[in-house]
């Protein structure tokens, strides 16, 4: 192992700590000296092959003709016993899908839809385009309609045929307007049917059961305790200078110290974020390039290494 990808928090021990693998149900399997040579040919196995090693019916040495025949008979019995057990004792696990459906879990990530407000009956979507920005495959297109009290989505199209169902759009939605449904039946004879517009999305939302996740719920679930949340925004220093969240303004002050890194020669003198946090919680097997000039070269070595 070359060391370039090292930077391990503790130096790796040489691979001598070889434990014999724990055998199953008491059968201990000892480690052996090395790959078996081509000379241990027994039984029904055929002669030596070059390169491919040899063939032996039993690794534990020759048992003789009768031993092997008995072993064969026993193996046949056990193998066919398992299949027979499944034949008679176990019910099929098949779900007869169009007739019978299994219970989909609450968090099922299915087809996307838009929702109406339950009380007022208004559309929830305010056309803020956050989902459009975050969508990794860029399947959402929103146009905002500005109005006095609140904004609306003028157009909302979703190309479901390219959607990867990652739920990021649901997660970022500030008004819980976009949700996922517990349905996944997209099969169609015409791809254009999967280009959903606003009305279709709303109709889908009325038609099918919604899954659990909404933007608020997801964000609440992920939210760290209040203190930590504030820390995340402002007080990056305790966690190593650079825990910076979305608003770029917040990023600046904390960033300048830490933004020394690979790439720019001007800043190269700045040391990289200092000591690694030594708690067990940080990822040990990672490393920041300390010396920027070396960085490109390191990348190259990695590529060749693969």
């Amino acid at each position: 192992m070359s060391d370039f990808m090292g930077g391990l928090s503790k130096p790796p021990e040489p691979p001598t700590r070889s434990e014999p693998s724990r055998g199953v149900r008491g059968r201990t399997r000892e480690t052996r000296d090395g790959p078996r040579g081509p000379e241990s040919v027994t039984g029904f196995g055929t002669g030596t092959q070059r390169g491919g090693g040899s063939v032996a019916v039993l690794r534990d040495g020759a048992k003789g003709f009768w031993g092997e025949t008995l072993q064969l008979a026993r193996a046949v019995g056990r193998t066919m016993g398992v299949t027979f057990k499944n034949l008679v004792a176990r019910k099929p696990v098949t779900v007869m899908y169009p007739d019978v459906r299994r219970q989909y879990p609450d968090r099922f990530r299915g087809v996307l839809a838009l929702t109406y407000d339950k009380e007022t009956g208004e559309e929830n979507c305010i056309g803020c385009r956050l989902c459009e920005y975050i969508c990794p495959p860029q399947v959402i297109k929103v146009e905002m309609l500005k109005a006095k009290e609140r904004n609306w989505a003028k157009h909302f199209t979703l190309e479901l045929y390219s959607c990867e169902f990652c739920e990021l759009c649901v997660q970022v939605c500030p008004t819980d307007a976009i949700v996922m449904l517990k349905t996944f039946e997209l099969a169609t004879s015409d791809r254009r049917e999967l280009l959903l517009d606003k009305d279709r999305l709303h109709a889908l939302g009325l038609e099918h059961e919604h899954s659990w996740a909404t933007g608020t719920r997801l964000r609440d679930m992920q939210a760290p305790p209040k203190a930590a949340r504030g820390e995340g925004h402002r007080d990056g220093a305790t966690r190593g200078e650079a825990a910076v969240t979305a608003p770029a303004a917040a990023a600046k002050p904390a960033g300048t110290a830490a933004l020394a890194g690979a790439g720019s020669a001007e800043e190269s003198a700045t040391p990289a974020p200092a000591a690694k946090a030594d708690g067990p919680s940080t990822a040990e097997a990672v490393k920041t390039a300390a010396a920027p000039p070396a960085a490109p070269g390191e990348v190259k070595t990695k590529e060749t290494a693969e």
């Binding site: 990021l168 970022v172 500030p174 964000r219 760290p224 930590a228 995340g232 825990a243």
Partner: peptide
């Protein structure tokens, strides 16, 4: 908590 950072918003 399951995350040290607030949920993704943008």
């Amino acid at each position: 908590p399951i995350s040290s950072r607030p949920g993704v918003k943008s």
